[in-house]
């Protein structure tokens, strides 16, 4: 059951990501991204991170992707022209990706016995546990994120605003 769910949603996730890249219309890419985000949240759920799974659906699949789709519709973005990509991308990129995949796959395969596993519902994270981590142990990173958001807002103002 666990394995079947993992395989289904794992493949769905990869398929969605590939479709995102191959589609020529931005709206199709955005919709594939929703597939990726939602299947990722199922994978989180299978790992026993139910809060993260829900946050993923609400924040990414919900809020952020709705914004994406709206922006694409407002801009009325048309079909993209297909380019053949650069030679460097094919010569260095594809072998690089394959090498990376090989390294990670062999690492996890070698370590599969001692890495252990987490299962759905094997432990439940209560709101109390979560807030203890977020607002006590990781208080400073949490607060500093506000500076990050401020920088992003400034960037949007500067890069998108008109020069007077």
């Amino acid at each position: 059951m666990h394995l079947a769910l993992f395989l289904i949603f794992g493949l769905l996730c990869i398929g969605g990501a590939l479709n995102l890249l191959l589609q020529r219309h931005p709206i199709n890419s955005a919709l594939s991204l929703i597939v990726v985000m939602s299947s990722l949240s199922v994978l989180y759920l299978l790992l026993g991170a139910e809060f993260l799974a829900l946050a993923q659906i609400i924040v990414y699949s919900g809020a952020i992707m709705v914004l994406f789709v709206f922006v694409i519709m407002l801009l009325n973005a048309g079909e993209e022209q297909r380019t053949h990509g650069s030679r460097a991308a094919y010569l260095a990129g594809i072998p690089g990706v394959l090498a990376l995949f090989a390294v990670l796959a062999s690492t996890f395969f070698t370590l599969r016995t001692n890495l252990g596993s987490a299962r759905l519902g094997s432990f439940l994270v209560s709101t109390g546990d979560l807030s203890r981590v977020l607002f006590r142990n990781l208080l400073l990173p949490f607060e500093v994120t506000s500076v990050l958001i401020l920088v992003a807002i400034l960037g949007a103002v500067v890069l998108a605003g008109k020069e007077q």
């Binding site: 500093v144 500076v147 990050l148 920088v151 992003a152 400034l154 960037g155 500067v158 890069l159």
Partner: peptide
């Protein structure tokens, strides 16, 4: 924070 501000 440092990267995003330099991108801009």
């Amino acid at each position: 924070i440092s990267s995003i501000s330099t991108y801009i």
